[in-house]
């Protein structure tokens, strides 16, 4: 299957490896554009996209908007307050209204799993999932994979540790689904209360000890810890969390010499990652941000251009 034959990008789960390759390959020339003086190509002139985020995330939304602007699409952000989810207009009506304004593509983030899937079923617009509940965040996983491939030259067979709150993390899930398609050895590490059931069945090894988990890994992907989790009682305090799971320079000795550090941002320095590691030479955290724009440009190009029906050439 070619990626463009899909109407929507809802998750990494359903993508085939060839489609991921195609997206990553397309992002390479896109990244060149970002580095030029004139950061604009006319490709998506006359196309319109809208970002609709039912959960705050300035950076992902900005990344999508900028990707659209670099490709000359018209981009709009629909401001929605999180509280409007439960009252007033139904989501279906909101989507219909947006569709009738003439948008070609919608980028949606929602705190509830499966909502982009529901929306995609109910609109002719193309839909990109910018994160749904604890399910998937496909563009983050794609940019993580792009960053790894760019630095390591390959994805196949790498050892990748994902560190933190796996239970609530869509970044972790999308990375697991993506990396598994390349035969990577994926490990997750975090407090036992934040590691969900079924990891082995996914082919993922779970660790509670940071030192053990990092043994010989090529990549460490550090997840953000949400302060709210403590209040619900998943762990006793952020201090104890940092004592056990904050990634520090000495931990890197366990990993491969050329280990690469990723973090989806925004970082809590001194909670899940120390400043030395975040700013160290092995960190690709800044590069991830640029790569995020490139990946999103690639997706917008692949999903927004094109005719609806096949026209002979």
């Amino acid at each position: 299957m070619k990626f463009e034959q899909r109407k929507d990008l809802l998750g990494i789960k359903e993508l085939q490896r060839e489609e991921i390759d195609q997206i990553l390959d397309t992002a390479v020339p896109m990244k060149d554009i970002i580095k030029r003086d004139i950061k604009k190509v006319p490709t998506l002139r006359g196309k319109a996209m809208v970002t609709i985020f039912y959960e705050n995330s300035t950076r992902t939304r900005t990344s999508f908007e900028l990707a659209g602007k670099y490709l000359s699409a018209d981009t709009t952000n629909l401001a929605v307050s999180t509280s409007s989810v439960q009252k007033g207009e139904s989501l279906k009506d909101t989507i219909r209204t947006i569709e009738m304004m003439g948008f070609d593509l919608m980028i949606m983030r929602h705190s509830m799993t499966g909502t982009p899937h529901y929306v995609a079923r109910n609109t002719s617009m193309r839909v990109i999932n910018a994160g749904d509940g604890a399910n998937e965040h496909p563009t983050q996983a794609l940019l993580d994979m792009y960053s790894i491939r760019e630095k390591k030259g390959r994805l196949d067979g790498l050892k990748v540790a994902i560190l933190g709150d796996i239970l609530h993390s869509r970044v972790a899930r999308s990375n697991i689904y993506g990396l598994s398609k390349y035969g990577c050895e994926v490990r997750v590490v975090g407090p036992s209360t934040l590691i969900p059931p079924g990891m082995e069945k996914m082919g993922v090894k779970a660790y509670y000890s940071l030192d053990e988990a990092l043994n010989g890994v090529d990549v460490i992907n550090v997840l953000r810890v949400q302060r709210e989790r403590q209040e619900i009682g998943y762990f006793p305090s952020l201090d104890e969390y940092s004592d056990l799971y904050m990634l520090r320079t000495e931990h890197l000795l366990r990993a491969k010499d050329d280990v690469m550090i990723l973090h989806p941002g925004p970082m809590n320095r001194g909670v899940e990652i120390s400043s030395e590691v975040a700013d160290g030479i092995q960190s690709a955290i800044n590069e991830q941000v640029t790569n995020g724009v490139a990946i999103r440009m690639a997706l917008l190009y692949m999903m927004m251009g094109g005719a609806k029906d096949e026209i002979a050439n």
Binding site: T113, A134, N135, P196, G198, K201
Partner: peptide, 9 residues
């Protein structure tokens, strides 16, 4: 397994 796989509570 499936609640983990589908990302649902």
């Amino acid at each position: 397994y499936f609640s983990t796989y589908f990302g649902m509570k």
